[in-house]
Design a protein around this nucleic acid. Structure first.
Lengths: 334, 334
DNA sequence: TCGACAGATGGTATCGATACCACGACTTGC
DNA sequence: GCAAGTCGTGGTATCGATACCATCTGTCGA
């Protein structure tokens, strides 16, 4: 196996110029005469040369890489955010280094340190419950950190998201104002899902005299798929048989709960309302037609990319908090 | 903003040893005395040092990075594959650099070249319709390339997957043998989705006298979500009103088609069978209960990781083809 | 005619880690 | 008591690109 890479020196020799000229021809073509540019491009094509970005990163002290950590890649919640982010970054010449923390703070700490090893120009996180280690690493590294999908009071650096608490409150209020008397908040049990915590708080805010009913499904592996929703609904109905509304912390859970309700022949929304969170693509599908909170994930990603590029251009983004809001989508299930 | 990274030299000074000793302490602790090791670890902790992997990659000519390109991150098809891959690789000390090609060969060519710029130790691809440029780049780079989710006759290097054609044939046969007389193959129209092409071929193989009915939904952006399934079913029923089975090329499509069928009050599976492909998590949910082909994505990812690690250890994996099979899951929709 | 200046190009040091070789302090065996 | 070997450690060159400064050519105005 040919494990030798073509280097810039090889290209320079083939084109009959100095390597620095090759570097310029590739990175800032305007600073090179049309004649040389052509020679270099020809040599690059012939040799199949691909610039070694790691070497470039070392000497320029700019890696042109942005590290991104999402809480989950299994569930499609963040799919559109990643897409928006990736599009925005690559338009600005930055590359995305993606990782998943699976809602585990220890895994986050590990991944942050792994990412920092690649000396990224910035970091984007959708996980916000950081361990002490993580915080120390992040502040020590002194690079822009952008938190997504929430708006902490005091972001590490900058944040792009919306108020999970308000969204949770709005959803609960909506159900209560449509005469639901015993709404339950259904979530998976995760120590460090701060978004779920905030939505739960919002639910509590809205209760006004109704009894708080919160049920957590213990996750088996660390997923959060529809299976848990089905299981969760079963447990909820056993615990509180008079439940007439289930506010699920995510669409995935809601899909599962909805399916389970139908399987049991429960009239949705007549006897039971089911709502989700996120508006993932299956949520709107006709057989489900789920009432949910829509989050414009792609917009969050795009905004994050914009901020990142600004920060890489030297702009100070410390303290920026961008609220992109949410939208309650009322469909057939409540 | 503090943009200065702590270097190995700083750690060495703090610990009162040479930098090379620090390098050894971190990478091969067994070659360092317990005493020095402790001093180094203390210094590392105090300074919050994170080794610069890019510099290490440059000097050791091994980046410990594996590039992975999947056809889509929007749809959860490859979610479990990525998880399996990531787990296997990180256990072996390798890091995953992830990208999405969105089923576009030109985008693949671009991403391959971007990835190669990071000098990965290997490449993993779920996209198999490569442009001439891509092939040249790949063979020129001379690194292990592993193709997933299919088994080309002649893989570039190695492949881990199953026979899409056989799976398509099995599904069509299953429907035909349960008295379906007019099965339609429903897919999205993409120039370069070779897996869909193979499943379609399998469908054709199975027909035996039945008229071939293949319908492609033109994608609007480049997604492949349930919306297309709903739209597709509507088009199919208009084109061939006597359709009694729809074999969808993916679960996402099938979910959409199924929902649309129910919305129209069509009896599933009585009047119309609907089947999917992949067995994503929502497929099994009770309200859907989709008949589909189960692919063990996580196993594919794990196998790929194993092969990658072997290749990085110098083993020759050229020509390896690992068939992990599939499983027809008969549920309520056909 | 000459100096000033802009544009194009090259030389050399440098980024941070590792490979390779060399060295000193021990232990071991005869 | 000494040669041979092992262990831990450090010095120096190196990986491939870029930053910085120097150089060289040619044009223009005085």
């Amino acid at each position: 196996m040919n494990r030798k890479w073509v280097t810039m020196g090889d290209v320079a020799r083939a084109a009959g110029v100095g390597k620095i000229t090759v570097s310029r021809a590739l990175r800032t073509p305007s600073k090179v005469s049309a004649d040389t540019l052509e020679k270099v491009q020809k040599a690059v094509m012939e040799l199949g040369y691909v610039r070694d970005e790691t070497a470039g990163a070392l000497s320029s002290q700019r890696s042109r890489v942005v590290g991104a950590l999402v809480s989950t890649l299994e569930q499609p919640v963040f799919a559109s955010t990643i897409r928006g982010l990736e599009e925005g970054l690559s338009a600005g010449g930055l590359q995305l280094l993606l990782g998943s923390t699976r809602y585990q703070p220890e895994k986050e700490a590990l991944m942050v340190s792994t990412l920092l090893g690649r000396r990224p120009d910035a970091l984007v996180l959708t996980s916000s419950d950081h361990t002490e280690d993580t915080r120390r690493l992040l502040s020590g590294a002194g690079l822009p950190v952008i938190e997504l999908w929430e708006l902490p009071e005091v972001p590490i650096h900058a944040a792009v998201g919306f108020s999970n608490r308000q969204a949770g409150r709005d959803m609960a209020r909506h159900l209560i104002s449509s005469e639901r008397r015993a709404p339950v908040f259904l979530r998976t049990e995760r120590a460090s899902d701060t978004r779920a915590d905030m939505r739960e708080k919002g639910y509590l805010d809205a209760l006004e005299g109704h009894a708080p009913r919160i049920h957590s499904v213990p996750p088996r592996e660390d997923q959060g798929g529809p299976d848990y929703g089905a299981e969760g609904l079963a447990q909820v109905l056993q615990r509180w048989p008079d439940t007439d509304a289930v506010i699920c912390v995510s669409d995935a859970l809601a899909v599962g709960a909805l399916c389970e309700a139908r399987r049991r022949g429960i009239d949705v929304p007549g006897a039971l309302a089911v709502t989700g969170f996120g508006d993932i693509d299956v949520a709107g599908a006709a057989a489900l037609d789920l009432t949910t909170v829509r989050i414009d994930g792609a917009a969050i990603g795009r905004e994050a990319a914009r901020l990142t590029l600004a920060a890489c251009d030297g702009e100070d983004i410390k303290g920026t908090r961008i609220d992109l809001g949410y939208q309650l989508i009322r469909r057939a299930t409540g």
